[in-house]
Write a protein that binds this DNA or RNA. Sequence first.
DNA 1: CATATCTCAGATATACTGATATTT
DNA 2: CAAATATCAGTATATCTGAGATAT
Lengths: 169, 169
Amino acid sequence: MSPKRPLRFDPIAEARRQWEVRGWGAPASMAAATSIMRAQQLVLAGVEAALREFDLTFARYEALVLLRFSREGRLPLGKMGERLMVHPTSITNAIDRLEEQGLVRRVPHPEDRRAILAEITPVGVDLVERATQAVVEAEFGLGDLSEAEADRLTREIRKMRRAAGDFED
Amino acid sequence: MSPKRPLRFDPIAEARRQWEVRGWGAPASMAAATSIMRAQQLVLAGVEAALREFDLTFARYEALVLLRFSREGRLPLGKMGERLMVHPTSITNAIDRLEEQGLVRRVPHPEDRRAILAEITPVGVDLVERATQAVVEAEFGLGDLSEAEADRLTREIRKMRRAAGDFED
DNA sequence: CATATCTCAGATATACTGATATTT
DNA sequence: CAAATATCAGTATATCTGAGATAT
């Protein structure tokens, strides 16, 4: 981790100013995209720090949560990749690792013999619940954002996600 | 690239519902953090697709832009790492690559002989301007977000960044 | 001597390409 | 035969740790 002290100015406001000086176009979009990238660095750093003691990465934690939320604790690997927006080989790799850790096991799909299900184990259920406590205590890397602010943020990003074709609804 | 079709529901709204069912705490923060992570995937995918023809990654593009915006087209590597919030060895690596591509060169720091400056070359200046055009045309992966929506998004994220200690201002 | 800056070697995580086996 | 599912081999990128060289 890098507990870097805060800058004494907003680097994105500064970048936007420079962007306009150069006449580079769409400065509002640049600022929004850069904001998203930087916010993600902060969230990822905060969450991964909380997950370290459980030997989980963010990607593997997300996979565990997804399985925990599924009706029967199992999902086809392909479906998991779609939902998490990751490459098929990345899911194979993540499930390999979770299986080594005893948090998940592979079981054959009952109807489609091409597909394989990942199923969360009791150990996995226990771990994901403890890891979640730690992530909540770390405030998801958001700092002390109020509930109202978090909701406004979620709503604004939701517009962007819809514009970018993430979902239809 | 993966031109995946949109889901027919908002996966984050669904995750939030499940999160509350399990009684996992801070659902508003979970939704905000997950929104940031997912938005970043969309932006990164859009921008990297636009940068591919220039043989640039997002990280190297950011470094070029930072140099382009500096007063004299050069900055110490350490300062670049701070500004981009990346590990010192990652900057070394990125500058190695940009130097191989002829977009940047290393020059000694005139006052502090420990430090090394990365300086953008004329070829680098030309490339970063052309790459920027492509990124703007790709709308930064934001889809057709209006300027007002982009500004609102930037403002909401700014609150989060301040709460997370990204800057003081 | 302590600190700062950068680099290197080695390890891990993720992603992508292209190929393959199996099943639908 | 075409499409879908998962895997594998190989490559690339980025991150981090720990060590070391050089300079302040």
